[in-house]
Design a protein around this nucleic acid. Sequence first.
DNA 1: GCCAACGTTGGC
DNA 2: GCCAACGTTGGC
Length: 157
Amino acid sequence: MAKRYWLMKSEPATYSIEDLERDGTTQWEGIRNYQARNFMRDEMKLGDGVLFYHSSTKPPGVVGTAIVCRESYPDHFAFDKSSGYFDAKSSPDTPRWMMVDVQYQSTFKRLVSLVELKTTLGLEEMLVTRKGQRLSIQPVTKAEFQLVKKLGSKKAP
DNA sequence: GCCAACGTTGGC
DNA sequence: GCCAACGTTGGC
């Protein structure tokens, strides 16, 4: 199975690339959307590349990269009544929600903004650029991953 | 199984 | 803070 590539959104107020750099690795808990869960459960494999995207910020955009370092397992925050991610319909016997762990890889020299993704030849097809696209985990192509990484590792265009 | 109501996401 | 887009829920 060839290595695949993903874009994962996070609100920096909740969890930022700086947090990931500090922690080294993190659990990607709290995904409560079936499509996103299915990507984690069925398709994200050890070693896959991740574009780390900051959402709900000015401006939103890709800020670094990470690597999938643990394949899917139950999101136990769904079992914890005191967690904001609690879901009564998920239990240890029949877990509804899954998560993966990701490992810090790099912080870009500069943010590659959503506007730039939309206007860069070769990136305009990325799901994140589409109106109304809210999926917090999205597949990206190898070419898109490499191009975004290249843009982010250079100073402003 | 339809669909209206509601909640959430996330850019602007 | 607004609101468009979309997903989920629940009555029927």
